[in-house]
Design a protein around this nucleic acid. Structure first.
Lengths: 338, 338
DNA sequence: TTGTAAGCGTTATCAG
DNA sequence: CTGATAACGCTTACAA
């Protein structure tokens, strides 16, 4: 393989100086049109491609964002994060950014990775997923003045009002509200909600959409709130019990597709295939089994993340804290009916 | 944020020259122990971290490998590839490599990405997944002398015998053989195989393990080979028909967890919960529904991929075609009984 | 063993 | 608008 052409080669071929070539690439408007065209032809002819590392060294930006690939397969719903990473990679490429992966088994280990990646100038910014209450990562990043955004809202009390960093999240309540509306539309009179026990932010949010929608329609919710861990067999057993009672629900809105799968199986076990099940996350399982589910729209979330990180038109991460408005974005999910 | 320390800063702090610092980092054995220790203390004290881009520019290697994140969610089995990417990232980090993502909607677009990444010196090598017959990507990479390995064996006739590049794959036949043995052990007398129609390499491989195992046990396979597309509802319908016949199988080994899910549902529909179903890929669905499945061991595959790419102990991609032995590795999967 | 010098390919600065 | 010069931070000869 012959040596790759450099700006110098292009400059010689086009009969201009190196700088002019660089200008054509980075500030085309500053170069006279005919010169520019000549340079562009030379670039084309030589198959020139800027050397990423050299540019990074010079500009002191890597044009790369780091994201952690989650170790927990996260059960059935793991697919959501994967789709997000995919969408992020695609959208980032449109803006001239690359996506670099890292892994970590604990928050401490992750912070070590963050440090290593940022200090080695491998990345300009991070996208954090799966944020949790008391998350040490966000504090570390703020403290070290590293640009980042999170997919997942801040859960700490102080942050909810005036978050100190940009975040994107899905409006879970809107999702379950749509699911509940759908169930009512389909003629369900008793719409249950199958959610998680521990008061988690995400869980509360999703339950709220269901509860408020029933209220708005003047339909009672009493006794229709079922609680179970994020586990298919548990959900299946719980729903089997519920469906065997005197006054079973005729529809159930679920906080996840795992729970929905459990509900679907329970209904199937009991020959109650008329039970309307609505899931959350729109995983392949929902598609395969044919139950409706709330789609998180990873592509919109990804685009939003980048907007927050870079501003809506820029092609570089906002390094300057000049616009330190830690904005946020709540994406309204979409119900996929089946 | 103050300017990050450089080798020069460390050198000054340790009272040595820049080069000595570089030597401590890259060839420690060449520096006198006490000097080395002094330098190491200075590095620690300053929190020095080598600048990745500068090093890359100088050494002309990026210590990064590129991998495409597959656009097709790939249904239920998509999780396998995701686990592979995760394992690859983890193993690569152990060897001082990073993993950079890219996406593409078509092979042509992908080749454009390969070109851009390699010519921009963003990556040293690629890992290709989802190879197929007549794959234009491998040819392009060979032609341009770009190091790479594939997860998936070569499917083209010419390549199978003496492959022109290193590849890793899962021994599908061994997986279905183990599944079939398991079914027989559990007392099944009629063990069926649910696979895909079109003669795909992967599909044929997986069927072979089943067929050969039955032969070895002197058990007939006639009429026990069922065929269906990779689609849960189709598999469910097909198995419903099969189970309604006079001489239904009492176990069914499946070419994927999607098919297994279909089979499981069909059995459940008919109240035939004693049908032994074995899947392939060990996805979260198999776990959730409690059927056995063949686990591909992504971690081993990932480790093997890197061995092929770098040699088993090196920390750098074999750029030199000095050792151009395009080796390969067939990983024996493991049956997860449930 | 350590230091000196050069250069990887790019872009920023500033003169023409 | 264009071109010379100087970094960016690092490593690799080669010389001391």
């Amino acid at each position: 393989m012959p040596r790759l052409p450099t700006v110098t080669d292009v400059a010689r071929a086009a009969g201009v100086s190196r700088q002019t070539v660089s200008n054509v690439l980075n500030s085309p408007e500053v170069v006279r049109p005919d010169t520019r065209e000549r340079v562009e032809r030379a670039i084309e002819a030589l198959g020139y491609r800027p050397h990423a590392s050299a540019r990074r060294l010079r500009t002191r930006r890597s044009s790369t964002i780091g994201i952690r690939l989650d170790p927990f397969a996260n059960g059935i719903s793991g697919a959501v994060l994967d789709r997000y990473v995919h969408a992020l990679t695609e959208r980032a490429a449109e803006r001239g950014l690359r996506v670099l992966l890292y892994t970590a088994r604990s928050p401490e280990e992750e912070i070590e990775q963050l440090r290593s990646l940022i200090e080695g100038a491998d990345v300009d910014a991070f996208v954090l997923t799966s944020t949790f209450r008391g998350d040490p990562r966000t504090g570390w990043l703020l403290e070290h003045d590293v640009p980042f955004a999170t997919f997942g809202r801040p859960w700490d009390e102080d942050d909810v009002g005036t978050p100190r960093y940009p975040w994107v999240d899905v409006d879970g309540a809107a999702g379950t509200a749509a699911a509940t509306e759908y169930a009512l539309e389909q003629g369900a009179r008793r719409v249950g909600f199958l959610g998680w026990p521990a008061s988690s932010g995400t869980g509360d949010d999703r339950e709220r959409g269901w509860r408020e929608t029933l209220q708005a329609h003047g339909v009672p919710a009493d006794g229709l709130r079922y609680t179970v861990e994020e586990d298919v067999p548990q959900a299946r057993r719980a729903m089997t019990r519920v469906l065997s009672r005197d006054d079973p629900p005729d529809a159930v809105v679920c906080a996840s597709d795992s729970l929905a799968l459990g509900a679907h199986l329970a209904a199937s076990d009991l020959g109650r295939s008329n039970l309307l099940v609505v899931g959350f996350d729109n995983t392949p399982v929902a598609d395969a089994l044919g139950f409706a589910s709330v789609e998180q729209l990873p592509d919109q979330i990804a685009a939003g993340t980048l907007d927050l990180l870079m501003g809506s038109r820029s092609r570089a991460v906002d390094r300057a804290r000049a616009a330190p408005r830690p904005a946020h974005l709540l994406v309204t999910p979409r119900l996929v009916r089946r």
